[in-house]
């Protein structure tokens, strides 16, 4: 690694002030599981690192009227073991436990995962399906951005140079809500997703009142599936509806080929993952 200055702010305010002063020359360091690899490979060359890992207030996971807020420095292990997440956002827990391995989950943070903006990140489809918002704070103040509006391409976001991701908030999943996260990789463990899918369905009187379906690793960013969501809305759960929706999910996938998979396989398998997820959560009412 090239030499760099090491700065250790004690608060988010101090971190933002440092970043505003240093601009592009500085990078924020959160869990380090991606940044240190990039530093070693000389893929990024910051003159200074602003280490956020000592800011305890950014690690909290709390609830506030109808929502859950996750501090950006919460690790995926914190998220995976949080009773609040288990109760009100368990699909994010399912995603968190698929990330890397225990050592990675202990270090990697949700804020870092979001800032890196990999379309294959397993933490991101769940927050799309949960309808999350991301709170950013910079020199000019605070703004809240819907997760769909945050990512603009692989590795690209609307984050400004002096802005820090503070927290990720989402409306609580209620008892009548159902959801899942499913992924497929080269191996069961420690594998980057070839394709992943997350869904949250609001159920009322045996019908789907609202659906949010998000796909990972099959487009330049994680994407929602508007056609599939419309198709599901107002319908009664049945095996044939699930098959129809799975085909629709495949048609909304816009996969490319790379070292991990081909576009044909990704577009196909994402429908299979969706169908499996749906059959799991509705196993009590399906034949």
């Amino acid at each position: 690694m090239r030499p760099f200055d090491y700065l250790r702010p004690k608060s988010a305010e101090e971190a933002i002030e440092m970043k505003a002063r240093l601009g592009k020359k500085a990078s924020f360091l959160a869990g380090g599981t991606d940044l240190l690899v990039k530093l070693k490979e000389d893929a990024v060359r910051p003159e200074a690192l602003i280490d956020l890992s000592f800011i305890e207030s950014l690690k909290e996971i709390r609830e506030a009227d109808g929502t859950v807020a996750i501090g950006s420095l919460a690790s995926y292990a914190d998220i995976g073991s949080s009773p609040l997440i288990e109760r009100f956002g368990y699909i994010l827990r399912q995603g968190a436990l698929e990330i890397g391995a225990p050592q990675i989950q202990n270090a990697a943070t949700i804020g870092g995962n979001i800032a890196n903006a990999s379309p294959a990140a397993d933490g991101i489809p769940p927050i799309y399906a949960l309808g999350a918002h991301i709170t950013l704070v910079g020199k000019e103040g605070r703004r809240v951005v819907a997760v769909e509006d945050f990512f603009t391409g692989p590795g690209k976001t609307v984050l400004k140079e002096d802005e820090l991701i503070i927290e990720i908030g989402f409306p609580k999943m209620m008892e009548q809500d159902k959801g899942f996260f499913k992924k497929i990789g080269q191996r069961k463990a420690l594998a980057i997703s070839k394709a992943s899918v997350a869904a949250v369905l609001h159920i009322a009187n045996g019908k789907i009142e609202e659906a949010r379906v998000a796909l990972g690793a099959v487009a330049p960013t994680v994407i929602r599936c508007p056609k599939t969501e419309t198709l599901l809305k107002g319908r009664k759960i049945s095996g044939s509806l699930i098959e129809e929706a799975a085909k629709s999910v495949s048609s909304e996938s816009m996969a490319i080929g790379d070292v991990r998979s081909t576009p044909e396989y990704r577009d196909y398998v994402i429908g299979v993952l969706f169908e499996r997820g749906m059959r799991n959560i509705f196993s009590d009412i399906l034949p």
Binding site: G32, T33, E41, L49, G100, N106, A107
Partner: peptide, 26 residues
Amino acid sequence: DKGECGACAVLINGKSMNSCLVLAAQ
């Protein structure tokens, strides 16, 4: 030396982490 193999795992405050992806300063 890039967080894939786990040979460098240590416990930091009781939590396992890959010490190749942690700065000594941290």
